[in-house]
Design a protein around this nucleic acid. Structure first.
Length: 149
DNA sequence: GCCAACGTTGGC
DNA sequence: GCCAACGTTGGC
């Protein structure tokens, strides 16, 4: 089983929204590196849900991958904000997985506390200037973050 | 709202 | 292939 972190803006879609929805197609990812991580996902992989672009950025909950990777339908919808007119149905460019709520953390583990952790190796979340919205997490990183909740 | 970082686009 | 311009992300 692999581990991942996926960002969301809580003003748009929060961990509480995921709890209500139970399972949500994680659409709208339009970055090739993030897409390639999504394509590497398998059903049952573990996911940290991260709140970004908000007053208290940090890890808010746990989810799991609930489907195989599949084409993101919003790329073909001209009315959708994430519409991609250059993506072809016979060769879809953008991919999503369904994400299923598991639980909220006891508190949102703040980004600055995660940044203060040491000895966790390379971590895309805390790399300077990082903007990746989907990124891999090692067992050690996962456990260190959950130890802070 | 500001701004640093970074990806993408397009002219050449 | 270079690189300036532009758009987006995301912390602060």
């Amino acid at each position: 089983m692999q581990r991942w972190l996926m960002k969301t803006e809580p003003g748009t879609f929060s961990i509480d929204d995921l709890r209500t929805r139970k399972t949500e197609p994680w659409d709208g990812v339009r970055n090739y590196q993030a897409r390639n991580f999504i394509r590497a996902m398998r059903r049952g992989d573990a996911v940290l849900i991260y709140h970004s672009a908000c007053p208290a950025p940090g890890v808010a909950g746990i989810a799991k991958v609930a489907s195989a990777p599949k084409p993101d339908p919003t790329q073909f919808d001209p009315k959708n904000h994430h519409y991609d007119s250059t993506s072809k149905r016979e060769d879809p460019r953008w991919t999503l997985v369904d994400v299923q709520f598991v639980r909220k953390l006891k508190r949102v583990v703040p980004l600055d506390e995660i940044k203060a952790l040491t000895g966790l190796g390379d971590f895309a979340l805390t790399r300077r200037g990082n903007r990746l919205s989907v990124l891999p997490v090692t067992d050690k990183q996962w456990n260190a973050i959950l130890a802070l909740e």
